[in-house]
Design a protein around this nucleic acid. Structure first.
Lengths: 197, 197
DNA sequence: CCCGACTATTGGCAAAGTGTCAATAGAGCG
DNA sequence: CGCTCTATTGACACTTTGCCAATAGTCGGG
């Protein structure tokens, strides 16, 4: 992998080094569980001394969370302008865009999507929640609804559904893309418009 | 907590000891993250030597998964008989039953529900998947639909939604119970009946 | 062009945690 | 009463983590 005799020590600007480490480390966490990757391995992959990881991120865990944070976030760019279409069509186009994104950036997004952590891993849960909230806001914006707290709570809930549907479609093949699109469109529409009785 | 001079060594049947350890350890994992609990602490809580944990479960991780497995499973008993009602009503009653269960057994179920782990934590993901599949089967049975693979895949997907809606309702208070019930009923009905176009 | 200060980076240390294994000691049976 | 079986223990070896003082790039002033 990395040449055994790594190049001489290079001195980078802190911000640059931070990013470089995160990027160098990402593939490791994509492939293997948190506990299976040692600080030594992380440092080796980034081509730095072990101590530097603690220096920049505090702890191994914090680096992990940083990587997750940047892997989970739904890519926001390139959302088409849908303002002229009727609501149901706007929702459908948005869901279609999400499915395409999942297909493309997918591997890292869907597998992450799968879940937060459970029980005590509240730190990771927080990161996932934050990402879901972000996705909810993006979705509301895309379909042209106001960013009301109640609406956002509902959309946040559907984020979990989007992820699990994507897993059924992409990883298990138990749903077709069209089915996924139909189901998600109807559900999001339902969550976004159903009044409190 | 535990008296420093723990009672003399007690000799139990393997199966009994297994269960005793799992139960003794559960509250620890309910309160704190996996990594924050050491084998020493687990052993102390169960009143046994550290080595015994490895003897019975192989590794610390395996004990953890065992605890999760038994915490996640949706309680199956006491499902009312709904066979006389029309489908939509059967779905509604079933969702209502689930919400009540979440409210009761909730703390451990909902928080677990939140999710699996991500990326590489495939072992935990497997446990959660298994639980979702189990829940899907129970739900199909309760609402009186055949256990078709395609249907089950769809219900499995909604399991994630049920969990996240419960979290919005119980932990954040952003949804009322009635709203949750309405939304889940409609969605499950949708997933259970919508034909492939 | 060289020197000195600043700080990014390193390498080794000490504490903590995990898994293994041979030795110990309950419990039932002849 | 002593023997065997095996649940249980305690100590050992190894890995991993976080910390800290020492090292060495890089930039600015003389």
């Amino acid at each position: 992998m990395t040449p055994p005799t790594t190049a001489a020590r290079s001195r980078l600007e802190p911000e640059t080094r931070r990013r470089q480490i995160i990027e160098a480390v990402r593939p490791l966490y994509l492939a293997r569980p948190y506990n299976d990757v040692s600080t030594a391995e992380l440092a080796a992959a980034a081509g730095v001394a072990r101590g530097l990881i603690n220096h920049y991120f505090g702890s191994k865990r914090d680096l992990f969370l940083e990587v997750m944070r940047s892997s989970i976030r739904m890519p926001a760019e390139e959302l088409p302008d849908l303002s002229d279409l009727p609501l149901p069509e706007r929702v459908r186009r948005t869901m279609d865009w999400i499915l395409t994104a999942a297909e493309t950036y997918g591997p890292s997004w869907v597998s992450v999507s799968g879940a937060a952590n459970l029980h005590g891993d509240s730190d990771l849960q927080l990161v996932v929640d934050e990402a879901d909230d972000h996705a909810a806001r993006l979705t509301l914006d895309a379909i042209g609804l106001p960013d009301d707290p109640r609406l956002r709570a509902r959309l946040r809930a559907t984020a979990a559904l989007v992820k699990s549907v994507c897993r059924e479609w992409l990883q298990r093949g138990t749903l077709t893309r069209d089915e996924a699109l139909d189901l998600l469109t109807d559900t999001v529409l339902l969550f976004a418009t159903k009044e409190t009785s």
